[in-house]
Amino acid sequence: MVIGGSIRERVARPSNRAMAWFLGLGALLSVSLAHALWFGLDGADPGHGVELVRELGLSDLALFTEARYTRHLSLADSHAAFQDHPLALDHFPTASLAAPPEHLRNPHVAGD
């Protein structure tokens, strides 16, 4: 292990291999960042999606299509989870993922 040894010695030195390993991972990280900048939302045009939203006046994403109050989250009324009949417990898994209304989570914010 001497400075400027033969190529085989340099390759065999653990710190050189570690450097190569981190340079490789660092290069991949840079590629991922460049990829995000190039193909990400900043660089790309949302395209047809925006046109369709403008044309039809759409208000929601079609992510959760199982119930009407999860399909159109922004249009559901304030007590949407129990709207089917009194005391109807909500049984759709999505509702456990969607947040309760702002005025319930944060009573200090004036209700809209």
Partner: peptide, 29 residues
Amino acid sequence: VFFADGFLFEPVLKGWATLYPAFRPRPVV
């Protein structure tokens, strides 16, 4: 997330929805 469409999260997001949109999230870091 950006090349395999986040397939591990699909069951969580899908819930009981039959019509789950097939979409590839666009990379944002």
